[in-house]
């Protein structure tokens, strides 16, 4: 019974994935492009950055990079707490 539910769920999930991939935009033709056009036109003359990915990561969306740094710092803190010395004394 449980296995039947798993099989049905797997088939359903597979069908949904196939449908989603079938409806995706073809490669190189995104759906809505005003933001992309703005970044591509603005990054080189106004920000002097040739690599537009870096311009987006550190300049236009710099606030999100704080989140990424915070995630890494949190992971480091968690690992130091988990593996600290003297933690297993009884």
């Amino acid at each position: 019974m449980k296995k039947m539910i798993f099989v049905v769920a797997a088939l359903l999930l597979g069908a949904m994935v196939v449908g989603a991939v079938d409806n995706a935009h073809p490669f190189g033709f995104p759906g809505k492009t005003p933001m992309d056009d703005f970044f591509l036109a603005d990054a080189l003359p106004n920000r002097s950055t040739e690599n537009i990915v870096t311009a987006i990561v550190f300049d236009y969306r710099g606030f999100d990079t704080i989140g990424e740094a915070a995630v890494l710092f949190t992971a480091l803190c968690a690992i130091s707490v988990l593996f600290r010395e003297g933690g297993r004394k009884r």
Binding site: S48, T49, A55, S80, E85
Partner: peptide, 30 residues
Amino acid sequence: PAGTTALMSIAVGLEVSGALSMVILTMYRG
């Protein structure tokens, strides 16, 4: 000429290299 984009890239590089090296060292010592 890119300004803070280049400097922030160096800063984040320092941070990521230190953090990932510390993860490996701390796990091995653990």
